[in-house]
Design a binder for these strands. Structure first.
Length: 103
DNA sequence: CATTTGACTTTGA
DNA sequence: TTCAAAGCCAAAT
């Protein structure tokens, strides 16, 4: 049995290109539906040398991570857009179309 | 060992 | 409907 963070990373790095996932969904996928915050905490502490598409992990409203993580929210949005993620007019992700379900 | 913190979510006023 | 507050739980201090 691996560390909590490890499980988060295990799932996060499997997110397909052009898709996103919410913190709550990841938490549920690793059997800890009440630990959405911890998932976010884990994403902030991603170990170096690990290739994790953290920009594909968003909150349940499809909003970008706070600017201080990627430098700016616009940067994260650009990356996602270039990967094929659909955005709404207000700058949030269209979860209906791009939400990824772990399996 | 006790307290604080946070890339969250849900609920109640 | 909108806004504030509380719950949640692993890690860091």
């Amino acid at each position: 049995m691996k560390d909590f963070y490890e499980r988060v990373y295990e799932i996060a790095e499997k997110i397909p290109r052009g898709k996103v996932i919410t913190y709550g969904d990841i938490a549920r996928a690793i059997g800890a539906p009440r630990s959405a915050r911890i998932v976010g905490y884990a994403m902030r502490a991603i170990p170096e040398g690990r290739d994790i598409p953290a920009h594909r992990v968003v909150n349940r409203l499809g909003e970008m991570a706070p600017s201080h993580v990627f430098g700016s929210k616009e940067l994260q949005r650009d990356i996602l857009e270039s990967e094929g993620v659909i955005f709404n007019e207000d700058g949030t992700i269209d979860l209906e179309k791009c939400r990824w379900i772990y399996r």
